[in-house]
Structure formats: structure tokens, C-alpha cells
Simulated assay, not measured.
Amino acid sequence: MIGEFLQDGEGDARQIAAETLAASPWEHEEFAHLIAWMRDYNRSHPQHKVHFMGDDISARKAGDRLFARVIDYMREAHPEALQRLDTL
């Protein structure tokens, strides 16, 4: 959800942070400001966009969906590393 927000800029940084990071250690106003700054940077630097990647076990809504995206990326970009990723 945060990654999509950074790329297309739709929505509100505070709401994205609240929905994605509720009840996690990252649910702070400063993190919402960071997300907004990253989106603004991407708008100003379309050729050098930043991305948000990560998984925090305490961010309940992020886990499975995020990990599936990592696996999909690895399958396309680095298929030789998939077996090692499965062992982690």
C-alpha cells in the first residue's frame, strides 16, 4: 500500500500510514511525513524514484501481500536465488 502510494501519489500520507501501520511501532506522525516526502520526491524525480520495501512482523497488514511481491520480483529478476530465499 505504501509502495503504490509512493509511485502514483493517490491518497493521503497520514491515512495510508494509519491504515498500513496501525498498532505497529511505526505508527507515528514522523513516518507519515516521511511517506509524504518520498512521494513528493518521486514526483520531482520521475527518472530516479525511490521505493518503499520492508516487512515488519508488527505491521499486521503488510506481511503476506508484501512477501508475495518480493517473491514475484525475485522470480522475474533473479530466479537463481529463489531456492535460497525459500530457506530463509
Rank of each mutant, 00 (worst) to 15 (best):
Q83G: 09
L21Q: 02
L34Y: 06
Q83L: 13
Q15L: 12
H78K: 13
A23C: 09
I35D: 03
Q15G: 06
W26K: 05
V50M: 15
P79N: 02
A68V: 13
P46L: 03
R14L: 13
R60Q: 13
A22D: 15
R14E: 15
D12I: 05
H51F: 11
S44N: 10
G54P: 04
Q15K: 13
I57N: 03
M74G: 04
D72Y: 05
D72A: 14
K49D: 14
N42S: 04
W26C: 05
L34Q: 11
D12C: 02
Q47T: 13
Q47E: 15
I35W: 00
Y41A: 04
A13M: 01
W26T: 02
R39G: 02
M53Y: 11
T87W: 07
G11L: 04
H28P: 05
W26A: 13
I2F: 00
Q83D: 15
I35S: 02
R75Q: 14
R84V: 14
M38D: 04
A18E: 14
H28Q: 14
M1L: 09
A22S: 14
G54L: 00
A32P: 06
A17K: 05
D8P: 01
F67K: 11
D8V: 04
Q83F: 11
G63I: 07
K61F: 08
A17H: 02
E80V: 05
A62R: 12
F31T: 12
P46S: 01
A77P: 06
A59C: 08
R60C: 12
T87K: 07
P25L: 12
G9F: 03
S44H: 08
F52R: 01
H51S: 12
L34N: 09
M1R: 01
E19I: 03
P46M: 00
R65D: 15
H45C: 08
I2C: 00
I16R: 00
A32Y: 03
L34D: 10
F31K: 07
H45P: 09
M74K: 06
L88K: 03
G9D: 02
L85T: 09
E10Q: 08
P46C: 05
H48G: 13
L88C: 10
Q47P: 06
T87S: 10
H51V: 10
T20A: 02
I16H: 00
Q7G: 01
M38A: 11
W26M: 10
T20V: 12
